[in-house]
């Protein structure tokens, strides 16, 4: 219990629950089982999208190709099932493999060239989306296997079936970082590249692994989303960029690497999804929705930051995790001890 309270996202979760309870008293529909299902369904997809970005943030890199991979995987699933007549299981497996390969490609290019993931994935993401549009001429595949539709839209009362794969992914990623040697070395490399390299950890392997897993997670998110929309369109993923960063960052992933709170992602996804839902339920002036969203994201980040301060107050600070706006290996600067201020 104590541990849960000390996690960075605890205040955020508390604030959301309180706001949710207040909302459901003032507008009774907010607490209705269909509305909770709606929030959970969207949150589940957001969570997996967020995990995909978190993988690369953990090694102090970033991926702008999450949406591009999702676009390509979406139309691959549609094409394999509808045009090539593969059984749905094989079609999903094939598409997930494709996502993995796309991520692997990003990782290999970044590791080989030591370029920033930002620019490499900007280019590859554009290329992936380009392939998806090229293959389909922007016409969606509409013959969606019933298993995907059931997964995407099925529910037991308020419980969306999508929550199951999302929680499974969250647990798998969390466990991977905690117990697998490769997971720990990812965090070590992300936290302090030079020190990790000196201690014999392969920076290249860490980056390639992070991007490959990120590609796989983006593919999983894409496959989950096909059932929600019931249509496999190359436009899927076009507006995932902000979500992919907002979820892990609100969830407490620092941009300087070395941290990967998977459960934080899930909580942040619920927060974002609930914000979107509440704005519609409360019938907020449509022109104000976008602005309110931005301000609320900001409020959520500040709340997360307060949580972090509370946490660092009770526990010995590992290091100042928010180097002012630095990215990538600049993290090594803030990890440097000594150099007192004059």
């Amino acid at each position: 219990m104590n541990r849960v309270l000390r996690t960075q996202w605890a205040p955020l979760l508390a604030a959301t629950i309180i706001a949710g309870v207040v909302l459901s008293f003032s507008t009774k529909q907010f607490g209705s089982s269909f509305n909770v299902y709606t929030i959970l369904q969207t949150a589940s997809v957001y969570a997996v999208i967020g995990l995909s970005q978190m993988m690369v943030l953990a090694v102090a890199d970033m991926s702008l190709a999450v949406g591009g991979i999702a676009s390509l995987v979406t139309i691959a699933t549609g094409n394999l099932y509808q045009v090539q007549h593969w059984p749905i299981g094989a079609a999903i497996a094939g598409s997930l493999a494709l996502g993995l390969v796309c991520g692997l490609l990003n990782g290999v290019i970044i590791a080989m060239t030591k370029l920033s993931g930002f620019i490499v994935t900007l280019a590859t993401g554009t290329a992936f989306t380009g392939i998806a549009y090229g293959i389909t001429s922007s016409i969606p595949y509409s013959n969606i296997a019933s298993v995907l539709t059931t997964l995407g839209q099925g529910r037991a009362a308020f419980f969306s079936y999508l929550v199951l794969p999302a929680i499974a992914m969250t647990l798998a990623v969390g466990a991977g970082f905690r117990w697998l040697p490769i997971g720990r070395s990812l965090l070590a490399v992300g936290g302090n590249r030079d020190a990790a390299v000196l201690s014999g950890l392969s920076q290249k392997r860490a980056i390639v692994t992070a991007h490959a897993v990120s590609g796989l997670l983006a593919a999983i998110a894409a496959v989950l989303y096909i059932g929600v929309l019931q249509s496999a369109t190359p436009a899927t993923g076009s507006d995932w960029l902000i979500i992919s960063f907002a979820v892990p960052i609100i969830g407490g992933t620092a941009l300087v690497g070395g941290e990967a709170p998977a459960s934080g992602c899930f909580v942040a996804a619920i927060v974002l999804s609930a914000i979107n839902d509440a704005l519609i339920v409360l019938n907020v002036n449509t022109e104000a929705v976008q602005m309110a969203e931005g301000l609320l994201i900001f409020a959520a980040v500040i709340a997360g930051k307060l949580g972090q301060n509370v946490r660092t107050g009770t526990r010995r600070s590992r290091r100042p995790s928010t180097g002012p706006g630095r990215l990538g290996q600049i993290a090594q600067d803030s990890a440097t001890p000594g150099l007192g201020m004059p």
């Binding site: 280019a123 590859t124 290329a127 989306t129 380009g130 392939i131 549009y133 090229g134 001429s137 922007s138």
Partner: peptide, 8 residues
């Protein structure tokens, strides 16, 4: 439809 690919 194929222009974005070579751009990338």
């Amino acid at each position: 439809y194929w222009i974005e690919l070579p751009e990338g």
